[in-house]
Design a binder for these strands. Structure first.
Lengths: 355, 355
DNA sequence: CTGAAAGCGCTTACAG
DNA sequence: CTGAAAGCGCTTACAG
C-alpha cells in the first residue's frame, strides 16, 4: 500500500497513528502519499492484533417501536461520541433469535453488548456471553408468575417490595439500567388523587416485571391516601387492548373516574374506548400512560403521562458498558426516575351525579 | 485453540466449515473438542483472508422516526435471512456526520452500504464510496430550488415530469429504491375528488424532491378532473407545522374542503389545527396524509392515508445490494407503489350553505 | 483425507 | 527516529 512511497509499513502505522517519535517531515510525506492513494486503514486487521474492535453489539426487541426508537438515539449518540460503532440486531421477542444474534456478535468480536428488554432470562444471557464481553441490560421484562402477580395485588406492599429487593434482579452478573417503575407509578397516581379521584383503575399490562412494579407503585400511592385499589386488569400492551379494557372498565356498574394505563399506546387506546362509550376525556374519565412517546402530545386530548428519560437511558447504558471495558466489574443497577408530564387527559372527576 | 485436540488448524477449519473431504470420524472429534472448549471462530480473521465480512452498513436519518423505524425492520429481516449483520449509523440530517459514518463503515470493511434519505448529494456519496462497495439509496431527498418548485406549480405538468425524468435522479451510479410519489399523490387526490371535493389544498412539506413529486401528482389528478389547484403551502414536516398551516388555510375567505398533507404527522397536526378552529373532521374538512405510520390508525378520526410498503422497501434495498455483491452492476431504480387506505378522516364535503 | 506453509493487513516490541 | 521480524486467527492452494 502506502509503502511504495518511501518507508516501511511500521513507519506508516506510526505516522498515521500520531506516534510521538516520527520526524514531522516523514509524517508529512506519509500523509501525502496516503491521501494520494486514497488509503483507508483496515480496521479489521487492526482489531486482530490489538484485540479491540471499537464496536458494540446492540440487540433490541424491534425497531418500529416508538419507545425503543428513542432509546436507540441515545445508544448511538454516546457510542459514536466514544468512537464506537453499533451493530444492530432485532430479537422480535424470540429468545432463540436473540441467542443467535448474541452468538454472532461474539464471533464478530464486539467489545461489549447491550441488550434491551431481553427475551431470554438473565441467566441464559450470562451463560452465553459469560466473561467474554461486558454486558448491560436495559430494562428487564422477566415474566411474572401468577403467584407473584397475586402477591403484588394482595400482600402488604412493603413486604412485596422488600422481597423483590432481596431476590435482586435475578442476576448480579452485569450492569442493568431500568426505570423507577414503582416511583413513577406512584407519582402518576398521586397526581390523580390530588385532582380528587377516588376510584382509580389500573390497566396493568402483560404479566411482566414492570407491570408488577407499576402495580406496586399504584398501591403505595393509594395506601398513602387511604384509598382502596380499584379494578386491576392484565392484558397485552397494545392499542386494541386499551380500547377493549377501557370499555370493560367503564361499563361497570360503578366505573372508575380515572384509569392508569400500562403505557401511552394502551392509554391512547383507552381514550378511544372511552369515546366509543360516548364518554368525554377528561370530563368523564381521566386517563394516563407511561413513556411519553412522541405521539402522546399529538393525540387529542394530549396525554398526561410519566416520561422516562429515554435518550438518557441509552446514553447511560453505553457509559456503563464503557466502564466495564475499562475494567470496572462490580455489577450495578441504575433505576432512572421518570418525570410527570401533565397535559390534557386528566382533570378533576365529574361532580357526583345528584342522587 | 482446538488444535490441542489432535489435528492441524487446517483440518479444524475444514471440519467446521463442512468441507466434503474430511473423515466423519475426525469431524466428529473436532466438533466435540470445539464444543468442549466453547470455541467461537473469529470472523474478523476470516474476513481478513476471505475478503467478505457478511456485514452491511446502514445509515438512516434517525431512529426515533415512525417511518424509518418500520423500514429498518425490513432491512434487518432481509439482511439476517441472508446471513448478514447490520452496522447502524444515524446521520441526523448532517452531511458531515454522514460522511464520517460512511468512511468508518468502509474502514470496517462492510460488504455494502445502504443509506436512507441521504443528507449528502448522490455525487458526494458516490465520490466517497466509489467502487469500493455496492451502494443503495432508499429515497432521495434532493433539495428542490425555488425555481423548480415554481415550475412544478406553474408549468404544464407533463413537461415538468418529462424534464425530471430526463435529468434522472442525478446519479446513475447506484441502485435506488423510492416511492411512486406522483402516483400515490394522484390516488389520494382522486379519492377526494370522488367524494365530491372541489377545493383541495396541499400542505406541500419542505422544498425537497418528494414534495415536488407529490405536488405534481396532485396537479395530475386535478387536471384529469378539470379542477383548479387550491392553495399550496410549503413548510417543515412537523406536527406543529401541520397545526399552523391548517389554521391558516382554514381561516381563508373561501377555505378548502379537503387538505392533502405532506405526511401523516403533518396531517395529524392539521386535524388538530382544524379542531382549534372549531371545525369537525371529516364533517367540515377532510384531511389525508402519506406513509401510514402506526399512529395513523390510532388517532381520532383514524387517518385516510397513502401507505408505502415500508418493510418491503427495506427488504428490496437489501436484495438489490446483495445482487450488487453478486456482480450485478447496472444501476437501477425501483419506485414502489403506495396503497390508498381509506379510514375516517375523509368524507364528502359539507353541503353548500344555502346562500 | 490431512498437514506444512504462506498470507490477509495491520501493530508492536526489539534492535539499531 | 526507523526498519526487520514476528504474530493476531483464520483460510487456501500445494503436497503428500
Amino acid at each position: 500500500v502506502a509503502r511504495l512511497t518511501g518507508v516501511s509499513t511500521a513507519t506508516v502505522t506510526r505516522a498515521l497513528q500520531g506516534h510521538p517519535r516520527v520526524l514531522p517531515a516523514t509524517r508529512q510525506r506519509v500523509e501525502e502519499s496516503a491521501s494520494k492513494l486514497g488509503y483507508r486503514p483496515d480496521r479489521l486487521a487492526r482489531t486482530l492484533v490489538t484485540g479491540v474492535s471499537q464496536t458494540i453489539g446492540l440487540v433490541i426487541p424491534s425497531s418500529g417501536d416508538a419507545f425503543w426508537g428513542e432509546v436507540v438515539d441515545g445508544f448511538e449518540q454516546q457510542a459514536v461520541d466514544a468512537g464506537f460503532s453499533l451493530v444492530l440486531g432485532l430479537a422480535h421477542g424470540d429468545p432463540e433469535r436473540e441467542r443467535r444474534m448474541l452468538e454472532l456478535l461474539l464471533e464478530k468480536r464486539v467489545d461489549g453488548i447491550v441488550v434491551a428488554a431481553p427475551a431470554g432470562t438473565p441467566r441464559d444471557l450470562h451463560g452465553l456471553v459469560g466473561t467474554t464481553a461486558p454486558l448491560v441490560l436495559v430494562t428487564w421484562d422477566a415474566t411474572a408468575t401468577p403467584e407473584e402477580l397475586d402477591r403484588a395485588v394482595r400482600d402488604p406492599v412493603h413486604e412485596v417490595i422488600a422481597s423483590l429487593a432481596a431476590s435482586g434482579a435475578g442476576g448480579a452478573w452485569f450492569a442493568h439500567v431500568t426505570t423507577d417503575d414503582i416511583g413513577g407509578s406512584a407519582a402518576l397516581v398521586r397526581h390523580l388523587i390530588e385532582l380528587g379521584h377516588e376510584r382509580i383503575a389500573l390497566l396493568a399490562g402483560p404479566a411482566l416485571r414492570p407491570a408488577v412494579l407499576r402495580l406496586l407503585g399504584y398501591r403505595v400511592a393509594l395506601e398513602e391516601a387511604g384509598l382502596a385499589p380499584g379494578a386491576i386488569l392484565t392484558s397485552a400492551e397494545t392499542f386494541e387492548a386499551g380500547v377493549e379494557m377501557a370499555r370493560e372498565l367503564l361499563s361497570a356498574r360503578v366505573p372508575p373516574t380515572a384509569i392508569v394505563a400500562y403505557n401511552d399506546v394502551v392509554a391512547i387506546g383507552a381514550i378511544r374506548g372511552a369515546r366509543d362509550l360516548g364518554l368525554h376525556v377528561p370530563g368523564d374519565v381521566s386517563i394516563v400512560g407511561f413513556d411519553d412517546i412522541e405521539f402522546a402530545s399529538y393525540v387529542d386530548p394530549a396525554l398526561t403521562t410519566l416520561r422516562w428519560p429515554k435518550r438518557e437511558m441509552g446514553r447511560l447504558a453505553i457509559e456503563l458498558l464503557l466502564q466495564g471495558l475499562d475494567g470496572r466489574d462490580e455489577p450495578m443497577t441504575e433505576a432512572l426516575a421518570g418525570e410527570l408530564v401533565v397535559r390534557s387527559s386528566t382533570a378533576p372527576p365529574p361532580a357526583r351525579p345528584a342522587t
